[in-house]
Structure formats: structure tokens, C-alpha cells
Amino acid sequence: MTPVFAHGSLRLYLLSLLAEQPRHGYELIQALSDRFGGTYIPSAGTIYPRLAKLEDEGLVTKSTDGRKTVYEITDAGREELLAREGDLDAIETEVSDSVRRLADEVRFSVTEAMKSLRADLASAKRQAREDVPAQSSGTAAEPGAAIRLESNRALHEADLVLNEFRQQLRADLRRRAAVARVPAATVPELRRRLDEVRAGILASIGH
């Protein structure tokens, strides 16, 4: 995926978000995700070092609200925003362009995936026709050809389901990591659960 922010732009954009209202780290990540329509979700490793740098520069302060660390812009931060108002306008334009670009990339990926699926299905149909013995009155379909076609269709649909699951779980884990740690036991537990699902699916299809 192509870069979303030019060098130094994210720092100023975070300041502008904090100028709207104090926020904790997850709220900043969520705000950025909302601005990009969910096509860009920055990681905690991207956001928190920049917040720490802004704090070192005296542009933001942080306070504790229960278990959350809330960041708030300082007067010096507002002065920086005012002084760089033209840069911020350019960043807003940059963000709009990035949203369009990311949306185009998503559409292209989906389109290519659908093209591949249609091509594979067409290939499976063609192969099924070639496997059907010629009859004097035309072509009669073998039961085996229909089974192969159905099997290929199910396989590609399974690929789509697995990809959707992977993307959703990855996004869920990143959101969790933004507000709290992801336990080390998550990986072996995930592997165990997936092994169980795999064994169950194979058993259900007779393997």
C-alpha cells in the first residue's frame, strides 16, 4: 500500500485532531480510521511515538483518566497550528487524495479477485464440457463434471471467506493492541482453534 502521509504530515494532523478535543490514543486511531473510511488504520507503533515527540516539544500534555492516557493540545501547540495553517490545508487536501487513492486500491484488489474467480470458474466449466463424451444427439453432462464444477466453486468461495476472516481478525487485533496489550498466549490459542476448525472441516468432507 502506498504511503498515506508525507514526512511530518501525520504529526501536524494529530495536533489538529487534538485541537478539536482531548483524546486518548485509541480515539486518535479511530478518528484517523473514520477520516479514511476504514481504508487506513494506523498502528499504535505509528501513533504513540509521535505523541511522545509532541509532548517532548511541549505541544501536547497527557493526563491519566482511569486506565487511559488522555492527550491535550497546549497553547504552544495551538500556536504551531496557527503558524502552519497553510500546511494544514495542504494536508487536508493530501488526506482527501489519499482516501480516493486507497479506495481505488481496494476496488482494484476486489476487481482483480473477482476477475480471477470468474476466470477460474469459466476454466472449470470449459474443462467440464471437454470431459463430457459426445453423444449422437448432442452433449450429455457427466455427473462427475457437475461435481467438479461445484467443488471448484466451493473452493473459491472458501478462499474468499478465509481472506475476509484474516482481514477482519487482523483489524480486530490491531484495534485491541491500540488500547491494551495482546497477550502472548493469543498466538498458540489462535493456532489451536484454527487446527480444530481445520480438522472439523476435513472430517465433514470425508478426509
Rank of each mutant, 00 (worst) to 15 (best):
E80F: 06
G206D: 12
E189N: 08
H7G: 00
Y26W: 04
L14C: 01
S63V: 06
R84N: 14
L169V: 10
R67D: 06
S136F: 10
R166I: 02
A119I: 09
D75K: 07
L17I: 08
V187P: 00
S137F: 07
G66D: 05
R11T: 06
L10K: 05
A146K: 05
Y48G: 07
M1H: 09
E79Q: 15
R50H: 05
A199S: 14
R166Q: 10
G58W: 04
R170H: 04
E55V: 02
L81Y: 04
R101T: 14
L202T: 04
P3S: 07
V197W: 07
A134K: 07
T139K: 14
F36I: 03
S33N: 06
A184S: 10
V99Q: 00
I41F: 11
D65P: 01
V99A: 10
S204K: 08
H156C: 00
R175I: 10
T111E: 14
E92V: 13
S96F: 11
D56S: 13
H24A: 05
S123T: 15
A124M: 08
T186C: 01
L15N: 03
I147L: 14
A158V: 00
V106Y: 11
A154Q: 12
G138F: 07
P22E: 12
D89C: 00
R198Q: 04
R11I: 00
Q167A: 14
A90M: 07
P188A: 08
E72A: 15
S63M: 07
A146Q: 07
A124D: 03
R174S: 05
V187T: 08
K53L: 14
T64K: 15
A31L: 03
A52G: 05
R35W: 01
H207C: 03
A6K: 12
E130R: 13
L162P: 00
A184K: 05
E130H: 13
P42W: 06
N163W: 02
Q21V: 07
Q135Y: 08
E150F: 04
A119L: 11
G86Y: 05
L15K: 04
N152M: 03
L173M: 07
L14Y: 01
L202G: 01
S96A: 15
R118W: 12
D65R: 13
T93H: 09
G66C: 05
G58K: 06
G45V: 00
E27M: 02
L28A: 08
S136Q: 08
V197C: 01
T186R: 02
S63T: 13
G77Y: 03
E80H: 08
L28V: 07
